[in-house]
Nucleic acid binder design. Structure first.
Lengths: 120, 120
DNA sequence: TTATCATATGAATAACTGTTCATATATTAT
DNA sequence: ATAATATATGAACAGTTATTCATATGATAA
């Protein structure tokens, strides 16, 4: 019987078992950690950050965003798909024009907190 | 003379010039946007998120973290280097043991905001 | 000194990601 | 109908990244 399963893939010994135990108790569920990292992965691209900042001002169509960022319509469209999948933006169609808008109230606060770290 | 430089790399026309102009005014400096994305890139990995959550509990040595996450000491050490470079963690040496701790007060709040989005 | 332990790090590899290009779809204009 | 416009999307490519492996460093123990 192996009662030290949690050490198997570590090539050194647990030095502070109590510390590790407590940290393990405070650790959120694996699924939450995964989704949190996925969210930040979405924020971890300059183009997507710019798109979201643009949408802080107002809803915008794909063409406007592409012009604003000086990028291809295709590139923007691909990124908007990712933002859509993450439920960070929503869209409405008006004829052939598609308007994108923010779909989450936390984004601005998260970005502000992030800038606080960057500018410290 | 080309007075429409900002449209060059976009294969469609600006539809709402006033909207684009306003969004451009509200857009933070390129450098800030880049660093913000870099920060979120660091948060965009499950291993690093777990390490930071572990450090919410208390300072921990590399070996403890590796055991807690069931990962190689080498993998953890590589990730700690990235966290160190981003000034998110600090460390102190005690003999051959190196203790890592959080070096930023914003992280917890950013993570909490992120979880708010994930769990909505 | 020699051995052992905790940590760091460079190289290699596999997996992932963002943009481009070509093209498709759908709506409006002629 | 046909053309033009706005957007979406699949494939390909280049660049990036996380882990592993082997090994190095630095500190303590024997």
């Amino acid at each position: 019987m192996d009662h030290k399963g949690e050490v198997e893939r570590c090539n050194c010994n647990i030095i502070h078992e109590d510390i590790v135990r407590e940290a393990k108790q405070n650790m959120p569920a694996e699924e939450n950690l995964f989704e949190l990292a996925e969210l930040f992965k979405v924020f971890g691209d300059t183009t997507r950050v710019k798109i979201l900042y643009a949408l802080f001002s107002s809803e915008m169509c794909v063409c406007d965003i592409a012009a604003l960022l000086g990028m291809t319509q295709s590139a923007i469209s691909h990124q908007l798909r990712i933002l859509k999948q993450s439920r960070l933006v929503k869209y409405r169609k008006d004829g052939k024009i598609v308007y994108y808008a923010l779909n989450d109230d936390h984004i601005k606060q998260i970005f502000d907190q992030g800038l606080s770290h960057v500018n410290e």
